[in-house]
Design a binder for these strands. Structure first.
Lengths: 189, 189
DNA sequence: CGGTCTCTTGACGGAGTTCAAAGCTAGTGG
DNA sequence: CCACTAGCTTTGAACTCCGTCAAGAGACCG
């Protein structure tokens, strides 16, 4: 567990064992069961979750009462509702475990404390945030440039292992198409 | 000019006059004429531009040869192509001045240097990047939840001054609708 | 083996695009 | 200061993608 986060952090900054221990002592481990919620709508997202193992989804409920998935996250990704976490405002989204998922989590207060005590962490999270931003911009690009059929083939090629771990109606939701239409697309190709 | 950037920086971190001078000395001012390019497709985006005064747009050319605007930026915003700037890869987008625009710019090397010399800047840009990420997530939300008509009224209410400064076909492009259809929407309401 | 959850099929409708043409507006040069 | 032109906006008709609704077929789980 400590090894995994150490390897992850060292992709971005050099931290010695003492620093790792220091940070690690501030992280809390927790396992969520399948379908258990990490965050519910209208509550402030108090934590940033680092996924050690598992799959989670972020979604909101639209006007018609349908779930719209905005993000999946797996091993070695962070899961949080950024706006809610940073600004301490109520979230409009849910975060839920799709499979049994083990995380390490950090509260905002702890993170702010770590920032002032360890400038290296400031750098680490500056880089992580940059990567998140880039990932988000890329996602927007895909939706901007591709029709639904292309999005599906793109997603299917890029993340084949996902297709197996996640039910099809969730993939449809993430791709912003109806399950019915996705079914049609699969038939056509 | 120095006052403006000082006020902007001090919204996020406390910097004394010596620090401001230090940073300021690393920034280069430049004025771009209307329609002049800050960045062209297939070139690496070497700079991060802080807009002192003006309006710029980021766009790419789609398969059919149409310009698709992904971002506007005005006074006190940063303009760059994040992915290209951070990863030093060729950009798929253009950045262009819509009006005469004065900027302060920073190269990646300079910025990296400033980070190591001034941990406060690491914090500053960590926060700026968080804000950009949140703004981007919000934009995605708007496009996910609203039909084109709602997007137009939302944009028209939220940023009325924009509607005046930017031609309508650019607004249509940003809203991801055709100029023809935007014209129809305006008539209907 | 019965029920709930998931996936498929088909008919229909509507939001938004495409293409072509005409009407406007504003900037430019004479 | 007017006339011309290029760029911008509007109009309308035909078409397309994709959503909605309803119903049935599998598939998984207790």
């Amino acid at each position: 567990m400590k090894e995994q986060i150490k390897r992850y952090f060292n992709r971005y900054v050099d931290l010695n064992d003492i620093e790792i221990d220091m940070i690690y002592s501030k992280l809390t481990a927790k396992t969520f069961q399948k379908k258990e919620f990490l965050l519910k709508e209208n509550t402030v997202c108090r934590y940033n979750y680092f996924i050690l193992k598992g799959v989670i989804r972020s979604f909101y409920i639209d006007k018609k009462g349908h779930e719209k998935i905005t993000q999946f996250a797996i091993d070695n990704w962070w899961a949080t509702n950024m706006e809610s976490f940073i600004n301490e405002t109520p979230s409009t989204q849910y975060i839920q475990a799709i499979e049994e998922t083990t995380v390490l989590y950090l509260s905002k207060e702890t993170l702010d404390l770590l920032y002032t005590e360890h400038p290296k962490l400031e750098r680490l999270f500056r880089i992580i945030t940059e990567n998140m931003l880039i990932a988000n911009l890329r996602k927007s690009d895909v939706f901007l440039q591709m029709r639904s059929k292309e999005r599906y083939t793109f997603f299917a090629e890029k993340l084949p292992n996902f297709i197996q771990r996640v039910p099809q109606y969730m993939i449809a939701s993430y791709l912003e198409i109806t399950p019915e239409y996705l079914s049609e697309l699969k038939k056509a190709k």
